[in-house]
């Protein structure tokens, strides 16, 4: 938690103390505003095949050495470009482009909290769903308040040790695990992402421990995405994650009882598809972010009738 002196900003760079009053400098000023496939978040069990209006402001409360979006997450707002787009305009843009959902993503909605909260509230009134893509490093009270207007979240579980979070992200593990538990208990759809970085969190025993934690605390139906790392920011000396490592991680997670385990950022035929955890038949076939076929019948397996975790319409 930052204690911000007058005239200073917090660790995130975008919340400042002006004469004892906390102010956000990015409210209504996204640096990025695009329509993405929902699968890109990644969310594989939420309105598949639909477009989601995705926004972010600069800043982040974490400083991950491997950040894939460091050019905006570690940027100073005074050095960056943005557009003016207040919450009402965001919602009308979403409606005009016929997107079913709005995603608060790329950097972290936690640091543009008020903008996220106000937009999400308006979007809910307009029957637009709200999606968060976040590292989950947030205190309980604001998290619970925000979740009332959220429909789905992809939350990073970057590692399973405090040491990893401290060394790589300048953060700690417990607040993230607590945020995951609160999110799941709130009833929203939760998917988890773990970015596998060679030599840092790619050992089979680490993958096993992470998978066990997800199964025991969030439930075996919680989709888990293993993403491949690309050398970026302060980790350009490390190699990209080999496909073999991701495939082994997926096998370990499935052996630990997780029903839906995916591989991301790297092409993998089986790792991109959704299979029935009961009869193993192919339910949703994907190629990258595109749906090739969707065999689900009202959210159930068409072959054995098993209910498949997700929000399908």
């Amino acid at each position: 938690m930052c204690l911000i002196e007058p005239g200073q900003s917090g660790e995130c760079r975008v919340r400042i103390n002006i004469d004892g009053v906390l102010r956000t400098v990015v409210y209504g000023f996204p640096c990025s505003l695009n329509i993405d496939p929902i699968e890109k978040k990644p969310l594989f069990h939420f309105l598949p095949g639909t477009g989601v209006l995705s926004i972010a402001t600069v800043g982040c409360n974490l400083h991950c050495l491997n950040c894939q979006n460091w050019e905006i997450s570690q940027a100073n707002p005074e050095d960056s470009q943005a557009v003016f787009c207040p919450p009402e305009r965001l919602v009308s843009l979403c409606r005009e482009s016929r997107c079913l959902s709005l995603a608060y993503t790329y950097t972290d909605p936690i640091i543009y909290y008020e903008y996220t909260y106000d937009t999400a509230k308006l979007a809910r009134q307009a029957n637009i769903r709200n999606v968060l893509v976040t590292a989950g490093y947030i205190n309980k009270e604001p998290w619970e308040k925000l979740l009332k207007y959220v429909d789905a979240a992809n939350i990073d579980l970057k590692g399973i040790t405090d040491d990893f979070y401290v060394r790589i992200c300048s953060a700690t593990l417990k607040p993230v695990q607590d945020a995951l538990l609160v999110a799941k208990a709130s009833g929203i759809l939760v998917e988890v992402t773990n970015l596998i970085i060679p030599t840092l969190n790619d050992k089979p025993e680490q993958i096993r421990e992470l998978s066990r934690w997800v199964k025991a605390n969030l439930g075996g139906e919680t989709p888990l995405h293993f993403s491949g790392f690309t050398p970026k920011y302060k980790m350009q000396h490390l190699p990209p994650t080999p496909l073999k490592t991701l495939e082994i991680a997926r096998e370990i997670a499935i052996s630990e009882g997780l029903d839906y385990v995916y591989i991301g950022n790297v092409r993998s035929k089986e790792g991109e598809n959704t299979y029935c955890p009961g009869c193993k038949s192919l339910l949703i076939e994907r190629k990258g972010y595109f749906i090739l076929q969707n065999r689900l019948k009202d959210g159930h397996c068409p072959d054995c009738g098993r209910e498949i975790y997700g929000v399908w319409k």
């Binding site: 409210y27 695009n34 329509i35 943005a82 557009v83 482009s97 993503t105 992809n154 950022n265």
Partner: peptide
């Protein structure tokens, strides 16, 4: 809850084509 600052400290640009997929991860 933080109060908003009306003026952006950096530079503003017009809204471009939002139908282009973002280059950022997530």
């Amino acid at each position: 809850r933080a109060l908003r600052l009306k003026k952006y400290p950096g530079s503003l640009r017009p809204l471009r084509d939002i139908h282009k997929q973002s280059k950022w991860s997530g």
